[in-house]
């Protein structure tokens, strides 16, 4: 799945946005998976991963850390999101030291991710570059809305719901932080970054104010 690759929006919004993923290949490196995945969930929490989850169970906003750990199986893949490069460095250092033999993937600004790898003494193997959106782009919502919706790579967050949240914030019915958490609940993988979403929602409110 290419779900963490095509996060859209201006470059400056990526300063606090690093998706992490851990993958295995059946029959090749699926050894002691359940324990490894449980330990990695603990590691992510200890490093302050703002969200993480398991697509079959949900994310940290819809279930508990303990339930996520309990529900890990040989078929699971786990993912989440960090909000600083330092967290990525620490995560990579720990994963290198533990030497689980599992694939570790980080999505974010290329130069920052490569720098994090260098700081952790990790040598990246390959990269999936985003060449952007092609085709009938007039069908797309505005860029700021896409910056929110594309954080759920399976597109479970609709542009209309983001607009509804903006209206609710504007009317004082919900805070930007709470609205961002509500949106994060719809992303079962746990890679939707509520901190970044909250900032974009506030930007959208400011934009509405200035356009009046």
């Amino acid at each position: 799945m290419t779900h963490s690759l095509h996060r859209l929006g201006p470059k400056e919004l990526f300063a606090e946005d690093y998706v992490w993923l851990v993958y295995h290949v059946k029959g090749i490196n699926d050894v002691d998976l359940e324990k490894k995945y449980r330990d990695i969930l603990d590691l992510a929490r200890s490093l302050g991963s703002i969200s993480y989850g398991n697509i079959k169970v949900g994310n940290i906003f819809t279930t508990s850390h303990e339930n996520l750990k309990k529900s890990v199986s040989e078929k699971s893949r786990i993912r989440g999101v960090f909000t600083s490069k330092q967290q990525v460095v620490e995560f990579l250092k720990a994963m290198k030291e533990r030497d689980y033999g599992l694939s570790v993937i980080i999505s974010g600004l290329i130069e920052e991710v490569l720098d994090a790898a260098s700081k952790a003494s990790v040598k990246p193997h390959s990269i999936h570059l985003s060449l952007g959106v092609w085709g009938k782009k007039q069908l797309l919502p505005p860029e700021e809305i896409l910056a929110v919706t594309t954080m759920c790579g399976h597109h479970m967050v609709s542009p209309r719901l983001v607009e509804r949240m903006v209206e609710k914030i504007r009317r004082g019915e919900i805070t930007p932080e709470k609205a961002a958490e509500e949106l994060a609940k719809l992303c079962p993988c746990g890679i939707f970054n509520p901190r970044k979403a909250s900032k974009i929602l506030q930007l959208l409110i400011e934009k509405k104010k200035t356009s009046k």
Binding site: L5, F14, N29, V104, S107, L114, A117, I127, H128
Partner: peptide, 14 residues
Amino acid sequence: RPNAKVNMGLGRVL
């Protein structure tokens, strides 16, 4: 685009 997905090369055959 400035953002991408990087495989960190920590996986291996077990």
